[in-house]
Design a protein around this nucleic acid. Structure first.
Lengths: 257, 257
DNA sequence: CGCGCCGTTGAGCCCGTTCAAAAAGTGTGG
DNA sequence: CCACACTTTTTGAACGGGCTCAACGGCGCG
């Protein structure tokens, strides 16, 4: 299945100064001059087909990445063969940075969900890059803080929310994250493209695919969501938010980029 | 309940240059000179009683923290009143950094588990501090990457591990994290002090206190753990690691600081 | 057309929950 | 040192949300 994502490939892929996702990405705070300098810490822009493994648990640490277009995900496989998706990656997301414990081996894996393109940053140059471009480092700190908050929300889901709450929460999150990457004048959109199977939803929510199917059917019958054929529509986000168990007034209804 | 923790308060609390947890903490990479400069971004050293709320969901963002002595935890309370513990905090841990979404309000809460002391960093000065002391920023980036990996492991627990696996995993993690904070010549220790009730274990593992009690009893009968009266002993860490579902050879048996 | 992946449906079971109550610690004040 | 209150842990019995196993239908693709 081929997904044409809202965020099209740029006219000149690999050229940071015209990069359409810079607003969301690591390089956001850099001036044009600084950008030119920082680019040498980046190896070539790379394209990967859907299904490609970007890295696997146990492999040595080589690159950190910025996802440029398409979808990907970070996951862990447990001894019994089950899988837990740890994070869905959307354009602009920075990932693959990991401390050099465990003999410098990857602790988890990452895989392309659609055809993607990404920027690669060799580990060897990272510290130097941050030292040379402090704003990059500061930007990364705040991006990490954002991602941490998002992961905490997932922890609360897996620990304390019911199946339907988890699913509602995940779909709503993905909806908002996708919207945040659309050009402002395209909003609001009625439905988004969602290249995510029920099996993947299950692996992200700590459920079985079978139970996701049943739950999703129930939610569909109540008019809460339409999630089929790679598209997602949430007729009433307010209501969906209540099902997802959002506390009113704090997170608001637009949790994360 | 009063817990005397292994890491005693230092002779001169608040003096960074003699700080016994610097090895693990944010200030680790700084030279003595840099340390003196960086200290002005820190407000006074603060002590709190067990049970104190360090911050609550919805409050404005004021400080980030380094926990100096004692135990604390970060948690979220869901609409139905249940609680999910997101992170246990041990001496040296940096926490409370959060992006300024949600109208600059805290998205989750933090609470002291024992009597604690901590260093407070006003939000207003953080960016300036990182800009002035690049090494601090870089250190924080790597600490965040470590914490992210640890949180991912928790996600995998809540999503895909059974009750006994989750509990084994959590206890083993806490065991190693405590050990990493003991002076090297005190190791190996037979048992550690663990100021954590079954209710807290339940809230961290996404279980009920009742089921934690039963599971822990079973594990005790098999000789896997002794977890009572605020002390934890793990007779056979190798075996415990297998129960926890560690993949051999990657994480090894010593996952995290 | 046939194969593989994805989603649906059904039946039965089990892990962990819920509700309830008692027992065992732990800290406080007389 | 004991009495009392409170928190933590234990134990029992019944329930149920989500899982397992299994089969079938639909759709895209070679």
């Amino acid at each position: 299945m081929l997904y044409r994502l809202p965020q099209e490939a740029p006219a000149t892929p690999g050229e940071c100064d015209t990069c359409p996702i810079r607003r969301l990405a690591l390089f956001q705070p850099l001036s044009a001059a600084a950008l030119a300098g920082a680019k040498r810490y980046r190896s070539e822009h790379s394209r990967q087909r859907a299904g490609t493994h970007l890295f696997l648990r146990g492999e040595p640490l080589e690159y950190a990445y910025t996802l440029y277009s398409g979808w990907a995900f970070v996951y862990e496989t447990l001894p019994d063969g089950t899988r837990q998706i740890l994070r869905f990656l959307l354009p602009g997301d920075f990932f693959g940075l990991q401390p050099e414990l465990g003999a410098g081996a990857r602790l988890y894996s990452a895989r392309a969900l659609t055809d993607i393109s990404l920027c690669k940053f060799p580990y060897g140059g990272l510290t130097a890059m941050f030292r040379e471009h402090i704003d990059l480092g500061i930007r990364l700190i705040w991006m990490s803080a954002r991602d941490e908050a998002m992961t905490y929300e997932h922890l609360a889901s897996l620990g304390r929310r019911s199946a339907r709450e988890r699913i509602a929460h995940l779909l709503l999150e993905l909806y908002y994250r996708v919207c945040a990457r659309l050009p402002a004048d395209a909003l609001p959109v009625d439905s988004i493209e969602l290249p995510v199977t029920q099996g993947l939803i299950a692996d992200a929510c700590g459920l079985t695919q079978v139970h996701v199917s049943r739950t999703l059917k129930g939610m569909h019958q109540e008019g809460l969501v339409e999630c089929k054929g790679g598209r997602l529509r949430i007729p009433d986000r307010e209501r969906m938010g209540r099902v997802a168990g959002y506390e009113h007034g704090v997170t608001g209804t637009r949790p994360f980029l």
